[in-house]
């Protein structure tokens, strides 16, 4: 299971006892309430996985680690593509409108961020001003023209949509890959770096 856990996966099974003693009260509360944690892109000990705990407020994000043995349940972003929620919010409308086009785009896609959290847990995390965060599994290179076409499609949605391309070497923002910058920001567990080709192994 270790190798298959990826950034943006949601994990259940963390208990307050696993938190560091200096964890803020809201973190302990979130975990005690049975909320999932989200896998972060960061290095950790071999028997642990870097995770983040969400609070109700935007600045309430707490980075910690979870023992892999403690994982009771896991939901990946791509498991959430066809989960429906009945809420009258721009992010929900955007997701409903984009779903058929994403299903037809030829890549595996998924829902992350607050939408993914709400779809997976049923805990309300989206609000009127929420963006929609999506991921796209891109094991093969996507050319920049294709990226521009995708951005055009996402820009027609009911809210701001941020899509991250997950390459074998990390994640890059679709919007940046579609843009004019020669070098783009690639994030992986080790570091963030500016690269010319996000599908090429760094030297």
């Amino acid at each position: 299971m270790v190798n298959t856990i990826l950034a943006h996966d949601l994990l259940w099974g963390m208990t307050p006892e696993q938190l560091p003693v200096d964890a803020p009260a809201w973190v302990v509360e979130s975990i005690r309430a049975g909320q999932p944690v989200v896998v972060r892109r960061a290095l950790s000990a071999p028997d642990c996985i870097a995770v983040g705990v969400r609070g109700r407020l935007r600045e309430q994000r707490f980075a910690t680690v979870m023992l892999i043995d403690a994982i009771a349940h896991r939901v990946k972003p791509e498991d959430l593509c066809h989960v429906l929620i009945d809420r009258d919010l721009p992010a929900v409308h955007a997701l409903n409108d984009l779903r058929p086009m994403l299903d037809a785009c030829g890549w595996v896609w998924g829902v992350s961020g607050s939408a993914g959290f709400e779809l997976a847990s049923g805990i309300q995390a989206l609000h009127e001003g929420s963006d929609l965060d999506l991921i796209l599994r891109t094991p093969q290179p996507m050319d920049r023209l294709k990226a521009q076409a995708l951005v055009k499609m996402l820009d027609a949605a009911a809210c701001q949509v941020d899509m991250q391309l997950q390459t074998p070497f990390g994640a890059v923002a679709l919007r940046e890959w579609a843009g004019a910058a020669r070098r783009v920001l690639l994030k992986n567990a080790r570091e963030a770096s500016l690269v010319i080709d996000p599908w090429e192994q760094a030297a």
Binding site: D131, D133, D162, A173, R175
Partner: peptide, 9 residues
Amino acid sequence: LVGCVGSGD
């Protein structure tokens, strides 16, 4: 003008 609008950026 560099960078990108989006979480973590």
